[in-house]
Simulated scan of single mutants.
Amino acid sequence: MREIGDGNVLLDVEGHRADVVLNRPEKRNAMNQALLRDLRQALEEVDATDGVRVMTLSGKGSVFCAGMDLEMMRERGEEDAEGLDVGLNDVTHYIEDMDVVSVASIKRGAIAGAFELVLPVDFRLISRDAKYGVIEVTLGIFPSGGATQRLPRLVGLSKAKEIVLSGEFVDPEEAREIGLVHEVVDDPEAIDERAREYADDLAENAPLGMAAARGLLNSALDVPLDEGLAHESAMGERLTETDDYTEGFTARIEGREPEFEGR
């Protein structure tokens, strides 16, 4: 793995998978300005790297991410500063708009801003012992990194209100039952490897098809049904002209695994 920017994020590419790792273990990977800047740079590199189809997002050390750096947040309040050079919303919007599919490894904790960081990630895996929730209302603020907007789209308005306004942690098993996470992993020491396996399985699918489907799914609740169906039909027609379309059906007829090349 190599360091990105000031070293607050690590990046490694193996085959069709990129692994992005938050690298402030001594601070439980709490997000400060430097980490957010390095994370944005890492995401840009992943998105620009040919052949990468999936990305994992994890944290070095014992915890995925403890949220925003409390010292930085206190200083912002005292100075009444306007925003950050690179803010959490800059990062989450970028994750949402990337062409690659993403998998988050939520080891032992994703609190407040960290909870919001993984909301736009496509697949979320969580360890059974994780502290997981938005606690901003207990800190004198409110969640402004996407929880009030993305969370209702994932779990419904009523459940989102319960999670946000209570400020309580969500039990990992309940999170799976309501569709907030996709898998609960018993052993926290095994979750990062499980996330990589999960990502590798996804990488075997046709990358153009995944990218197209991901984009349309992300916009599905923001456009009228007829408009969304028209976009879906047009994209389907476009993909029939690709080599991957031919390879997929040829492989099925020949009884072998397809070898997609993303063209």
Rank of each mutant, 00 (worst) to 15 (best):
K131P: 02
Y198Q: 05
K107N: 04
D90N: 15
A190V: 01
L165G: 12
F260M: 12
R150Y: 11
D122H: 04
E197A: 13
G87M: 09
M68Y: 11
V181S: 00
D226A: 04
L10S: 05
G209F: 05
V21F: 05
V185K: 03
A42K: 02
L119N: 12
E227A: 01
G179I: 04
L88Y: 12
R76W: 11
R2N: 06
P152R: 10
V181K: 02
D85G: 15
E75D: 06
A81D: 09
S219P: 04
T138N: 13
P224N: 00
R252T: 14
S127G: 09
D186G: 10
S158T: 15
V155K: 08
D69R: 06
R2Q: 12
V54E: 09
D171T: 14
E45K: 00
L202Y: 08
I163H: 07
L125V: 07
N8C: 13
A220Q: 06
E79D: 14
G215A: 04
R153M: 14
F123L: 14
S219F: 08
L117P: 05
R128S: 15
L36K: 06
A34E: 14
E193S: 12
D50L: 05
Q149I: 15
D200I: 03
D243V: 13
V164G: 10
A18M: 00
A130E: 10
V86R: 14
M72F: 12
V170G: 08
V181T: 01
E78P: 03
G59Y: 04
A175L: 02
V170S: 09
A104K: 04
S219A: 13
V9H: 03
A30M: 02
V52S: 00
L11P: 00
R17N: 08
L22V: 02
D99M: 03
V46Y: 01
E232M: 08
A81Q: 13
D200E: 10
I135S: 06
V52K: 00
E14V: 13
R24T: 08
S144F: 11
P143V: 05
E116M: 11
Y132D: 09
G61M: 07
G5D: 03
L57W: 06
V13G: 03
G262P: 06
D171L: 12
L208Q: 12
E26V: 10
A251Q: 13
D171I: 10
D192T: 06
A160T: 06
V20K: 01
R53C: 07
P152F: 11
N32M: 07
I141A: 09
R17Y: 02
K27C: 11
D80I: 11
T56W: 03
R238C: 15
R196P: 05
V86W: 07
G236H: 09
F260P: 09
E14S: 14
I178Q: 04
